[in-house]
Amino acid sequence: MNKKGILQLQSISLYFGREPIIQGLNLTILPGEIVVLMGPSGCGKSTFLSALCGIVPDQFQFSGKVLLDQQDLTCLPLARRKIGMLFQDDLLFPHMSVKGNLAFALPQEINRRERHNQVIALLAEVGMEALAGRDPATLSGGQRARISLLRTLLAQPRVLLLDEPFSKLDQVTRSQFRQLVWSYTERYQLPTLLVTHDIADIPDHCSQVLQLPYMESTSC
């Protein structure tokens, strides 16, 4: 499904006004590897992920290079970065059915029938094919989170950025959803950057945990 990629962050700095959030971060995330970024609420974790996508709010200054398989993403527009992102909220499009949400992520060239088949096959894989025609608002939190993950994967990203995607789920669902996410990152060998403030979210196989404001990296 995905081409394996290596995500490299070179000399990354992020400032809020004059206040440094990240200074001179150099980081390499290999295919299937997970790096965790931790920090208290409001310390700039989500802004950092947005900045990796090229969206830097006015009050912030971002510098450095984001490379994916040696290709510099920094100068590419958001649409061409091939980044998959999951947020705290599932952000399912409320005006589309589950199937519509998933089909939106499929490449333009795929014809209608093939789109339908691919979406149904993917839903069947997680035992949710019966939900294809449903209004997202009628799904449970766990179902919505899973659909959101499947939608992200259907777009065939080469990097996965996770912005506290587990924080709004209850304990049981959260644990199941974590396992699902880690299984997919491993299966598709996606370099993954997870932002969280909950230690329980850190997977056993994570390679690094960074603390914001960034001073030094700490191995797991």
Binding site: S50, C53, I55, L78, A79, R80, R81, K82, I83, G84, M85, F87, D89, L91, F93, F104, A105, P107, Q108, R151, T152, L154, A155, P157
Partner: peptide
């Protein structure tokens, strides 16, 4: 974020 997600997903 809806628009960010949509652009990332569709590439357009």
């Amino acid at each position: 974020r809806y628009l960010t997600v949509a652009i990332l997903l569709s590439g357009r």
